[in-house]
Each structure stands twice: as C-alpha cells, then as structure tokens.
Nucleic acid binder design. Structure first.
Lengths: 260, 260
DNA sequence: AAAAGAATTATCATATTATGATAATTAGTA
DNA sequence: TACTAATTATCATAATATGATAATTCTTTT
C-alpha cells in the first residue's frame, strides 16, 4: 500500500451501515499491523478526516462536511441545476422527485435532488448516493452519452443475465440517444417511473442528467408531453448556465494569473 | 511535506471562492515542482478526491459528496437531532432558523439546519459552514461546555479587542453555564437574535448545541419562555437519542466481534 | 494537415519517509 | 490501587517520494 491509497483504504471501510471502527478492527480488516494503523489514523484525525470517539472508536471527520459544502456552493453542475429542481417540481403535472445526477467513476451519483412536499414514497435517489449504471432513466440519460470503448468498458463491468439482455440494452440506448430522452418503469424502485434528459459540458467534463420521477399510479398518458417539455426546457437552461459559470471562472483565472 | 499533509495542503487550497485550480497554480502556491504536483494530483483524481475538467483545471471530487452522505446518514448527532429541527421550527412562536452545531477543531460548525419556509433573511448558519467561536448563541452554548486549559487554549486563539473584553466574555460564559442556556443579539448577523442550549455526549466526544435564530423585529418578550422550553425539551430529547444510537452501535460491535 | 506550444507522464538516482516488531507510556476500569 | 486495554515512542531497515529532465500526448493555430 502506498501514497494516497494508504489513506483511502481506511476511509473506504466506513459506510452508512458501519460508521464506527476501532483501530484493531481496521488493522484486522486491512491485514496491517496496528502500530501502523495507529500512526495513519492519528494523521487523519489531525487533518479532521477522521474523528475519535471514546471506546476507541473512530468515525469519519468533519472535513468531509466542509469540503462537501464547498462543492455544493461552487460546483457548476449543482450551482446551475439546483435552483431549477424546485421549479421543475412545481411545473410538473403530478407530484415528483427531481434529480440531478452525474457519472461518478463507474457509477451514477445523484448530486442534487428536490422532492415535492406532497411526494410520499421514499426513493433511492438522494444526494450523494451511488446508483446502478444500467437501471433507471436517470442513469440511462447519462450512459447514453457515452460511446465507443469507454461505453464498452463500462458495460462489461455490469452483470447482464444474458447476452440477449446486453444486446437489448444497447439497442434501447441507441434508440434513446436518437429520441433525446429516456423513460423507464420500476427499474430502480417498484411503483415508480422515471423520465430523463441528458446534460453535458465538454469543457468541464460533465456527463450528467436531469430527471423527474413519479408514482406510476398518478401517471396519465396526457402528462407525458408536459413532462418532456419541462425536462427539455430546463435541461437546456441548466446547460446554458453551466457554460456561463465556466466562462466566469475562466475570466477570473485569466485576470488573477495575469496580475503577476 | 510528508504523509497525509501532502494531500491535505492541496485540498485546502480549494474554497467556495476559488474552486478551480490548475497544476501550475497549485505548484506555485505550494512552492513545489509541478512534476511532483502532477503525480500527487493524479493519485487524488484516481481516488476521486479531485476531478479534472478541461483547460487543465481541477476541482474537488465526488468522494466528498459520498462520504458526506455517509456522515449525514450515520452521525449520531445528525441522526438524533435532524428530525427535531423541523418540529422545533413549527413549535416556535415566531418564524425561525434552527441549527445543530458542534465543535470542529478550533471552530464551530453547523451540521444540520432547518429554516421555516416563511423565514426570509439569509443567515450565516448553513450546514458545513464554519462559525466564529466566540460570537452568537449557537457557539456560546458550545464553548461554555469547555473548561480549564482547553478553554484557555481556544480563547487565546481569538482576537479580543482588549483584556477587558476577554474578561467580560469569560464572565458571561460562567453566567450562561449556570443558567443552562444562552442568548445573543446581532453578534453574527445584524437584526437577528439567537437562543441556544448545550448538547453533549461524553462517550462520543460530542460537544454541540441546539439553537433557534429569530428576526429581532418579530420578537416579543412573552415569546421567551416558550422558546426556552422548546429548546430545553428538544435538547434533552436529542441527547437521549444520541445515547440510544450509541448503545445500538456498541451492541452491534460486540456481536460482530464475538462472532469470530 | 502540419507545426508550435502547452499539458501531462515517464525516468531514475538520491533523499526522505513509512514500516512493523517491540518496548514504554497512558487511559480506562473494577 | 492494581489490572487491562489503548495508544504512543523507538529505531533499523525496506519502501517510497522527490524533482530535474526528457519523452510523450493533447490543443490550438496557421
């Protein structure tokens, strides 16, 4: 183990289900002597990436909250898209969850969400949560932007039941790419349906989507055109704002860099 | 520079105001050759603690969103307190911002907040934001739990205008400690007032506070007893739940550790 | 399409740092 | 108080990071 990996491996042990670890547990789990782990953990506590509780337990530290906040207030995708989620919810014909998601490594991650106050069911789409790559409209509108070898690599990581399933998926992907939007039913949460459009920004390396999720029971066919119109309109708006934000950033850097 | 510091120093460059950095900018700023920075940045991109955009810019990576989410869903303080913030807001006699905050290094950090929908003004208390240690009721209810050398060290980091100011502050602290709650006016945001109670859990090393912030203009003297009653009641409830959560965690560890 | 320039990665000898077994200390508990 | 568990210190050795430079790749311009 070397470099940043040394620290990452420890952080990766912490999960929602298991958020407290003792040094001995870490040591066993990583098959590394406890004297080494003690030293590393101490470093990370100093840096506030870990925090110690009594009973010799350690948990994730407040640094993550701090940096998360910085991202939240400065990430172009979040900044550009967040304000529209509520509007989208209000203009949708039925109660909805609205989600901004992006490619995150080999997964899709939700980066912002807004649920209508009247939406009762719990959904799998919540900020920070990793989502499966091949299920749900939210993910589809992301993966359909990817082509060639990159797509192949991503797809090969997934466990399709059969080769037929895989071929079907790729066919659907192609279709949706042409249409410019996606629809899926119950792929992530039972009883829910999703609609999504792609969002991207080449300069910023953003591969993302904007989606609305509804209760199947609430949905009528006549809602469809309105839903697509809303998503398309706001999707374009979000892209426009991302561009503007990036331009501002570049301008700022040119100014400050030329000041010396 | 060695160990985790090497990585931390780079991360610490990123802020809300300046969220994009090029390798060259980092290299200049840290007075370290760019070949070294390139290597380190690449490592962090792999670990998803940094992310590259085009134009050779880098920004904070999605790992922070992921770990933040884990904290959000597993931190005993947040888990115990978050659900009460809305209730507190609803039961307060006037529109309010309600905040859970905790000691974070030498600062106070807000870890959860709920604003009444009718509360219009922007406040400085938002999740993840660092707050001054000696201003505002939210911070006061935290620092008043600290005594002895620890308190002295913390206080000495602050710039009091005069020794008199410092003595006064310590006197007020003592008073509030006796009373069991705090009140301040306009110390953090003009036109706002704050009420706070302490929250702590020795086992978990939690030194925190629960507070309600109001518009000075809305406030009448007759509101005061209700506000204190609410804060006290919910403060105790939060502490009770923190305890229960910790007991669950311990039970879980005993079980899984004895399984081998 | 070629060329120039910028960004990024590779190389490698050397300096620095991490490792882990063990001992020493400290904190927690009965 | 004494006992046990947790944490820190020590240190020789193995492993790794560093940074100057060269090589490569990516972008932009003509």
């Amino acid at each position: 183990m070397s470099g940043f990996q040394r620290y990452k491996k420890i952080l990766d042990l912490f999960s929602e289900e298991r958020s407290f670890w003792t040094v001995l547990e870490i040591s066993k789990s990583l098959k590394t002597p406890s004297s080494t782990i003690y030293r590393i953990v101490r470093e990370m506590v100093t840096a506030e990436f870990l925090e110690s509780a009594s009973g010799s337990y350690f948990r994730l530290g407040p640094a993550f909250i701090k940096f998360n906040r910085i991202i939240n207030f400065s990430d172009p995708l979040v900044r550009a898209g967040q304000p529209f989620l509520k509007k989208l919810a209000n203009e949708n014909p039925i109660t909805s969850v609205n989600v901004l998601a992006r490619l995150y490594g080999n997964n899709v991650m939700c980066v912002a969400d807004y649920k209508s106050p009247t939406f009762k069911k719990n959904t799998s789409y919540q900020r920070g949560k990793l989502m499966p790559l091949i299920y749900g409209a939210t993910s589809r509108a992301i993966i359909m932007q990817i082509t060639g070898k990159r797509l192949e690599n991503l797809i090969n990581l997934e466990n399709f039941k059969s080769d037929e399933d895989k071929t079907n998926f790729l066919k659907e992907l192609k279709n949706d790419r042409k249409k410019g939007y996606c629809f899926t039913e119950g792929q992530v949460d039972k009883g829910l349906i999703g609609f999504a459009v792609s969002i991207s920004n080449k300069k910023l390396g953003i591969v993302a989507s904007l989606s609305s999720i509804f209760n199947l029971d609430d949905f009528l066919l006549e809602h469809e055109p309105i839903i697509y119109a809303n998503l398309t309109t706001y999707g374009l708006l979000v892209e426009k704002y991302i561009n503007e934000i990036f331009d501002d950033i570049q301008k700022y850097h040119h100014e400050t860099n030329s000041m010396r």
